[in-house]
Design a protein around this nucleic acid. Structure first.
Lengths: 347, 347
DNA sequence: CGGATTGGTTCAATCGATTGAATTGCGTTT
DNA sequence: AAACGCAATTCAATCGATTGAACCAATCCG
């Protein structure tokens, strides 16, 4: 492998200066068409490779947009990506991501790196446990030069734009739905307050029950990671009690999928023997057996909105941080049904 | 926002030259400990941000590794990521990805961009339709300076390292399994020859049937995209015939998931009324209702192996391209069972 | 025919960090 | 006191592309 060709090589070969070559390769009108074509041809011949470091050093901005997310194992999060990619593609901006896997260190690393790189902006689905200081602390001065938008998960106290789903509202809808079906013994499965999402959903769950006059039974809780495996064994654990719940509210669809598989294994018919709800309404929710009752989170709209906010900041828009809250929608399918008779209590 | 501070600012503030600051910030032993600490402190005070463009220009290598994949909607592909990330994290290399969504243009853009950036290497799960020329053509001279490893999908004729699953073998296992259960009327669902994976699997499917003396019935085929939605309606279409198949072989798990949901809708019990098989054995396969018979593809091992190959090339290893072929394994769960009686033909 | 215009190209400074070689200061040795 | 060694720091060139200003030649106009 020989050294990478540079503008200079092309210039020498053509018999002009690097300025001419630089302008020609970027199709500047100041260079005559004939010369432009010749230079493009020679560039191809010598196998010229544009040097982004040199250009970036001179120009400052790299034009890329960064996205940091934390759970690629959950297809819910990948749904955000598509909407955003399209938007940025239109702007001719390349999008680069990082999968931080809920590691604050990796996330911090990536953000720093992108700032050092002159990324134009960053969209962040923050790792569980991200605090205000991770975004505004003294040791993250670089973030002050990097437009930042929070997506899906909130960071309390952070002074940045954000696009969040109204999780509390969504969960209230779930509980109301189950109550109206006659369920009283309702269990909680998943979460565990590591993210704003988990916190908001669980709190709304408890409050909705409380308000209806059926406070939540502390035995009917299983906390755990957002995985199929946990959903599966969590449901088994919930059902292995003297007086098992008639409905199980899952923190997310992924957990609900695991729970459904456990129902099948235990011989319980979802929607008949026990009701199960998800949250997120990812595309797979419509294809479970039976189809899952869930809360639709508009990842497409949220992604698009986040992109817009970021682009506005990139183009210099000033002003107070914006908070966009998306209204969710309950999607009733077949995993919820009337509460079965089981005890003499409520019905 | 004021201008980004540079080494020069720090130097002036401390009263030394930029050389000293540069060395100090990288903890070079040539600079005294006291001076080093002072410089680090001042850097923090002024909110210094390292300029990767300047450094990269001088040094050449950016130390990052790039990954390009094409279907984030299929969790199968995200499984590769985790294994690789860990490996590169150990090497202190940051991994950046691009989601090309099966667009050759986006894929080409990304590869060029990464080369221009001085990425150390690239792992590519090529977009459907990628050809030898996309990797070796005259207009992609930049790729000659960029170590490249193909993962999961092959590109015929490409002279690069690759880590591929033995799809033909896996599919042969599937067909043998179904034949041994007495199935003769076996349908094909999905694929359509856009990727090497689809091609290899379908061809092996046909050959295995042919060899057993039960050539494939051309009416028992539905081609389509790798989505749940297609799996669902594809199965419906297959079953809506005079003499429907007793088993449906799906190109991938994702399609099988959709097919299972269609079975449920049609009132067919998978593994009893009709057998369904997947391919990939992604983690969700064990949690379908009922659990899916599939072919395990070791995404973890493949990802690790691809990382190793790439790192070897990055550190200068010469020699002919390596081809690593992984052996798959049939995982029999509950969606396959004895062929039901249906016609007087075979049983 | 002299002066202004225009199109095409070059000049030269610049971006900020890196690094091998040179320098300085200071204590130690002979 | 000269010579040496060593540690700490500075010098100065360098990486490759960009860009506003300058330049030159040909053309146009009055």
């Amino acid at each position: 492998m020989t050294r990478r060709p540079t503008l200079k090589h092309i210039a020498e070969r053509v018999g002009v200066t690097v300025s001419t070559v630089s302008l020609a390769l970027r199709n500047d009108v100041r260079i005559s068409t004939a010369m432009r074509e010749q230079i493009h041809q020679v560039a191809l011949d010598v196998g010229y490779i544009y040097n982004r470091h040199a250009a970036g050093l001179r120009r400052g901005d790299s034009g890329t947009v960064a996205l940091c997310l934390n759970d690629l194992g959950n297809p819910f999060f990948t749904e955000f990506i598509t909407a955003m990619e399209q938007r940025f593609r239109v702007e001719e901006r390349m999008m680069l991501f990082c999968h931080a896997q809920e590691s604050l260190a990796v996330q911090a690393d990536f953000m720093r790196r992108m700032a050092e790189h002159g990324a134009s902006g960053l969209i962040l689905i923050p790792a569980a446990g991200t605090t205000r200081d991770d975004l505004h602390g003294v040791d993250v001065a670089h973030l002050r030069h990097l437009p930042l938008v929070l997506l899906s998960r909130d960071v309390p106290g952070a002074e940045v734009d954000r696009v969040i789903n109204d999780d509390a509202r969504g969960m209230t809808l779930v509980v109301e739905h189950l109550l109206s079906l006659g369920h009283r013994r309702i269990a909680w499965l998943g979460g565990g307050s590591t993210t704003s999402t988990a916190k908001d959903r669980e709190q709304a769950f408890r409050e909705a029950l409380q308000q209806a006059g059926y406070p939540h039974d502390p035995r009917s809780v299983q906390y755990g990671p957002t995985t199929l495996a946990f959903g599966h064994r969590g449901l088994e654990a919930l059902m292995d009690q003297d007086c098992p719940p008639t409905a199980v509210v899952c923190f997310s669809d992924l957990i609900a999928f695991g729970a459904l598989s456990a129902c099948h294994k235990l011989g319980l018919r979802p929607g008949v023997d026990v009701s199960v709800t998800g949250f997120d309404d990812m595309s797979a929710a419509a294809y479970t057996t039976p189809p899952l009752t869930s809360v639709r989170v508009r990842t497409d709209l949220m992604g698009a909105r986040a992109s817009e906010l970021l682009l506005a900041r990139i183009s210099g828009e000033q002003g107070a941080p914006q908070q966009v809250t998306m209204a969710p929608e309950l999607v009733v399918r077949e995993t919820t049904g009337p509460a079965p008779f089981r005890s003499p209590e409520e019905g």
